[in-house]
């Protein structure tokens, strides 16, 4: 593990967190405004996702011409393409939780720095849910999680 990879990850995290703050997506009220198609619809999330996917896609296009990443030995990007019940069931459960509160993992973690009790409660429960998954999932089936690498 070299220091440059850690610095790159720190900068990437900083870009992510400042992007979330600038975009307005740390605010559950605006996220729920997007998800509330029958109410006063707020399209902000669509603009954010458009900007994010467009710039991110440049990165994934550049990757095609690279044998390996600049600072690491190989790309570790999921290669799985088939849909399975875990993927869709997990996405459904996540969607319900996201719709109940308006927070997903990135904004929830970034918002911790504001020191709001509601955010801390949500993040504690979220980490509990992640831990519950880890404790209940069968050991050794790691490759079935879509974590297979290319």
């Amino acid at each position: 593990m070299n220091a440059s990879r850690i610095v790159a990850a720190l900068v990437a995290g900083l870009l992510f967190g400042s992007g979330l703050a600038l975009s307005g997506m740390m605010d559950p009220a605006r996220v729920l405004g997007f998800l509330d198609v029958a109410g006063a619809f707020d399209p902000t999330l669509a603009f954010v996702l458009t900007g994010a996917v467009a710039v991110s896609a440049v990165g994934y296009l550049l990757r095609r011409g690279m044998a390996r990443p600049l600072l690491a030995g190989r790309f570790e990007v999921p290669a799985a393409r088939r849909l399975d019940p875990k993927l869709l069931g997990g996405a459904a459960l996540f969607g319900i939780g996201w719709g109940l509160v308006g927070l997903c993992p990135g904004p929830a973690l970034a918002a911790l720095v504001l020191g709001l009790p509601d955010v801390a409660i949500f993040v504690a429960a979220m980490l509990g849910g992640m831990l519950l998954y880890r404790l209940t999932s069968i050991r050794g089936s790691g490759s079935a999680h879509g974590a297979t690498t290319s």
Binding site: S4, R5, A8, A9, V11, A12, G13, L15, F16, S18, G19, L20, A21, L22, S23, G24, M25, T44, L45, F47, V48, L49, T50, G51, A52, V53, A54, V55, S56, A57, V58, G59, Y60, L62, R63, M66, R68, P69, L70, L71, A72, G73, R74, F75, E76, V77, P78
Partner: peptide, 24 residues
């Protein structure tokens, strides 16, 4: 503003991929 915020998030994903080879 949302587009610019999204672009920063996309830049984060691009950097982590091209530098470290990982998904953000």
């Amino acid at each position: 503003t949302p587009l610019a915020g999204g672009a920063l998030i996309g830049a984060s994903a691009g950097l982590l991929l091209l530098a470290n080879g990982r998904i953000a």
